[in-house]
């Protein structure tokens, strides 16, 4: 499995050129200043933001290609996206949050329940299944969000600032959860971070978004 990008992303008044590949089982950190386009990059891969030119593909199958006019809808991409802050559904319990993707894909009630429960157990948070996000600590919320992201067995995992705004205890919990995920997850993992400790403990390779007068760029060439 490979995630491969050769794309220009334009948003409001910035341009981000991205040209890199991430291999199966590899965990890559993307660093760069605030507003350099890290979240937009993830949104483009997940299909939540159109790209201006170029292509993004997983295992040589295009998710988007402006030349051959391919566009796969976000709900068809099976990209595991962890937005910054987790973006848990505030009206759903931990269990229901994790079940959400299974429900959207038409899984039966029993299947949903079993899979989601196993997933919560895997991250040591099954005792929080009936809590709502506002009743959880930052580290607990983030682990529920990671479980929700993995429940559909995505092909690629994108983690946007997974430890931002967490206290040291929460950060440790999340890093442990991510290290465990890195061991078992088969596809490429890409995460953004401001925290050098995260990069040191998780990343096997680091890409930095560089800024110049004619736009930002992230490349492994």
């Amino acid at each position: 499995m490979t995630l491969s990008l050769n794309a220009s992303i334009v948003r409001d008044e910035f341009v981000l050129r991205a040209e890199f590949s991430v291999r199966n089982g590899e965990c890559v950190a993307i660093t760069g200043a605030n507003g350099s386009g890290k979240s937009s990059l993830f949104n483009a891969i997940a299909g939540l933001l159109p790209i201006f030119t170029g292509n993004i593909s997983v295992n040589n199958a295009a998710l988007v290609d402006t030349t051959s006019r391919v566009w796969v809808q976000p709900e068809e991409r099976n990209i595991g996206l962890l937005p910054q802050g987790g973006a848990l559904f505030p009206h759903l319990t931990s269990q229901q949050n994790v079940e959400f993707g299974l429900r959207a894909n038409g899984e039966s009630r029993t299947t949903r329940h079993t899979i989601a429960h196993d997933m919560l157990m895997q991250f040591g948070i099954d005792h929080l299944a009936d809590r709502y996000p506002h009743q959880l600590s930052g580290g607990q919320r983030q682990r529920v969000a990671i479980a929700r992201t993995l429940v559909l067995r995505p092909t690629v995992l994108l983690l946007d600032e997974p430890t931002v705004a967490l206290d040291s205890h929460g950060r440790t919990e999340v890093i442990e959860a991510l290290l465990a995920t890195r061991e078992t997850f088969a596809g490429p993992i890409v995460f953004t971070s401001h925290d050098e400790r995260d990069v040191a403990s998780l990343a096997q390779r680091t890409l930095t978004i560089s800024s110049s007068s004619d736009g930002n760029e992230v490349t492994d060439k």
């Binding site: 099976n78 559904f89 009206h91 959400f100």
Partner: peptide
């Protein structure tokens, strides 16, 4: 409604009607 919630719903396989009924309307 936080656009990130809508985005994450779609990347979890939810079609627009599902997002409306299960995320946006409850919120």
């Amino acid at each position: 409604v936080d656009p990130a919630l809508v985005g994450v719903s779609r990347s979890l396989g939810a079609r627009p009607w599902h997002v409306l009924l299960h995320v946006q309307l409850p919120l």
